[in-house]
Structure formats: structure tokens, C-alpha cells
Design a protein around this nucleic acid. Sequence first.
DNA 1: AAATATTTTTAGTTTAGACTAAAAATGAAA
DNA 2: TTTCATTTTTAGTCTAAACTAAAAATATTT
Lengths: 216, 216
Amino acid sequence: MTPNKEDFIKAIYELGGDQNVVTNKALVNQLSITAASVTDMNTRLLKEELITHIPYQGVKLTEKGSLIANQLIRKHRIWEVFLSEKLGYDWNEVHADADLLEHASSDLLIERLNQFLEEPTFDPHGGVIPNKDGTIPDIESTPLIDVSLGSSFKIKEVDDQQEFLEYLLFKEVQLGKEYTLVDIEPYDGPLTLETDSGDRTILGHKAAFKILVEII
Amino acid sequence: MTPNKEDFIKAIYELGGDQNVVTNKALVNQLSITAASVTDMNTRLLKEELITHIPYQGVKLTEKGSLIANQLIRKHRIWEVFLSEKLGYDWNEVHADADLLEHASSDLLIERLNQFLEEPTFDPHGGVIPNKDGTIPDIESTPLIDVSLGSSFKIKEVDDQQEFLEYLLFKEVQLGKEYTLVDIEPYDGPLTLETDSGDRTILGHKAAFKILVEII
DNA sequence: AAATATTTTTAGTTTAGACTAAAAATGAAA
DNA sequence: TTTCATTTTTAGTCTAAACTAAAAATATTT
Ligand SMILES: [Mn+2]
Ligand SMILES: [Mn+2]
Ligand SMILES: [Mn+2]
Ligand SMILES: [Mn+2]
């Protein structure tokens, strides 16, 4: 296994490849490599039985491949917690460093680090940390876009993209913060959230897809 | 720069290549690669002006090369402190993980980690941590083999080899511990150390080369 | 249904980093 | 000072992981 292979498998997983077939095109976009390079890597992973492949359609992870993806994500997210809680990184800063560290972490190191951090369940943007055996604790949460007018909720998880996290930092939307949905404009218009103290935040329609909440 | 190149430069440095010419043979032993691979890597590093090369004699680090070596050693040793102090590793366990992590550490990460650890001066076996700018704090210390009979001293630094550290762990020789040299046998014979409380430890002649002390 | 556009694959090239085998240079012993 | 041993270099091979360019397959429009 190499860092490149690991990241490729993770990319398939993040595109839903443990359930559905993922196209080459999707991987081209996700990883910023050429279509030919995707085909190359596919044949390599196929040989190791980490994926299945339907010609001209795409790839899916095998059990073995899924396990590798989940264990890599575990490492990634445990490092993100460390960077955030112990080294004072903002939540939009953790991803890049964790993306390197995840490939340089022995199992022993991750288990000790996990102990040191007191076995966290979530990473800094609310992503759930897979268990050591590759299983995933299931957490109930609703996309903000599905919340009905007047409901109150708590922020549970937000999308992991650098710019989106920066945007939320600016908007002061944080994990665990509570709001009531006081307005939704039609035709994919903006949503207005209000805190207990009456502060209002307006978010676009697309942003509401990238935020998961728990109704309270 | 790649992990392999970094480790190669570090190996030259550890063999004294910031001052003296280091032979290919020495690098073959240090890195467990073939002589041809050493020549290959030499030509690559020469092209980047990280080393100078005298044909059939060996290589020396340039200023640029030395700086890279020192910064890598800084990363390595800061990670060793973290593994030892925060994650509870023994001093013989830290090296392998640090050898991977050193290549996956941004400058930001290392500086934050250094703060978190409260700017340590020494790694777990007493190696001095180079400064951010590549300079090295100078520390006075004497090889145990040069200590004269009857002198008292404190353990300052020990050699970084896995098996040697395991041996010292077994012998209960620890950094900072104080002894008096009560006997040296001739013909490269063993040394007998005694603590305040009268406990005696016998060490071989070669071990005494691998231990640095401060006379008290 | 034919034309056009998109996606995937194939074929061939490149670079880093390893290797083996053999030649050339240097050093040590007879 | 030859001879033998060691070290270094050269030459050629291999794999992983990228790339470009072109061919083949599939999907979308007209
Ligand atoms: Mn992340
Ligand atoms: Mn990564
Ligand atoms: Mn070390
Ligand atoms: Mn290393």
C-alpha cells in the first residue's frame, strides 16, 4: 500500500463507492488527475482485489477496499481532532495536515493517540470517526434543507471543504450551536436562522445541503 | 523533495557529512541499499546542489543540504518527544514512528507541536533538537569512556540504536541518572558504575563509547 | 437515425527509485 | 610491483505513478 493508492481508495469511498458504482469522471474531478491515470490506478487496485470494475461504467470497493478506506478515514479524523484540540488549529486548517499524517501513522500510534484524545466520536466538523474494526457508529441527523419552518435544531456536521468551512467560520456557524428556522424563501431561496438571543443568520439554499442537524 | 531523498541526506549528515567526506560504502551500510543505488541518489542530489561529490571518494553536504538535514532532525526529535511524553512510548519505541512522521510534517505543524511540548531542548535519548533556523544549541558533554576513575557524572545522551536502548532499559541506565565510576578493567575491559545508594552497574567497553555524560 | 459530444480505454512516454551484473578504479597484500 | 580484494561506477532492467495523444465505446442532440 502507498499514500497514492490509499488516497485513491478513500476518494472512491467518499464518492459512495462502498455502495454504488463510481465513474472515472467523478474520480478525475475528485483527485485532479487525468482519465488515463484513473484507468491505470483502477487496473492496479483490481489486481489487488480492492475494487470491482465494470468496463465503461466505473468501480466499486470490495469488502477489503472498504475496510482500508474506513481505517484511513479513522486515522484522518483522529489526527484532525488532535490538530484542533491540542494544537489550536481552526476547523478549516486541519484537513491538509491530516491528509499527510494519515499515511504516516502506525496502528499503535493511532491507538495511543486515540487514548490520549479520550476516544473522540467526532472530528472537528462533526464527521463520525470509524471504529478500529472499520464499522461506523450510526448517528441520526437531518440535512438542514429538510428542516421544517419553525423547528429548532442543533448543528451536528458540516461539509469538509476548505472554503465552506471558512465561510461558516465567517458566518459564526459552529458545531453544537442551536437555532430556530424562522424563514425559507421559495424558488431555492435563502434560509433564515435565529438563535435564542435573537441573532439572525441567513444561509443560501446550497449551503443548507451541506449542513446536518439534530432536531430538538 | 521526497521522503527517500530526505532520509538519504539525513544519513549523510549522521555519518558526519556536514564536515567530512562520507563514502558510498558507509551509506550502503546505513541505509541497507546497494552501492549502485547510492551512486544513483548521489547524482540526483548533486544535480540539486545538496551535496558535493569527489569521484571514488564520497560525498559531503552543501550548506543547503546541511540545512535540510538539520530541519529533518528537528522534526524527527520533536516527534520523539511527543511520542514519549504524551503517548507514553518507551525511548526505544519512538524512533520508527518518528522516522515516518518527520516526512509528513508541515512547518506550521512542527512549530505548533513544539509550542504544545513547551519547546523541548532534548529528545528522549538526549539528542539536542536543532533550532528552527538549522543552527544547533551546543551542549558540553563527555563520552563515558573518557571519564577518569573516581569521577561522578550524570547521563546526558545515549546512542539512538533500537537494541542499545533496549539494553539500557534493561540495565536501568536512564537520562539524568547520576553515577560514580568506581572501576575500569584494562585491555578494553568493563566499567563499573555506582549510584549514591550503592547500586552497581557493569557496562562493556563499547557501550561506554555510546554514552555521553556531564561530569559533576 | 445520424451526427456530435463525452467518457473510457489503449498505447506510448517520463521520472523517481530501486535492483543485478559487469567494468573500472582504488587500496591492500604478497 | 604485481596480484588480489574492495569499492565505485556504468549499463541495463523493473515497478509505481504520473502524463499526452489517439482510438474506441457510450451518451446526447439534432
Ligand atoms: Mn478532513
Ligand atoms: Mn491523504
Ligand atoms: Mn530517532
Ligand atoms: Mn525518515
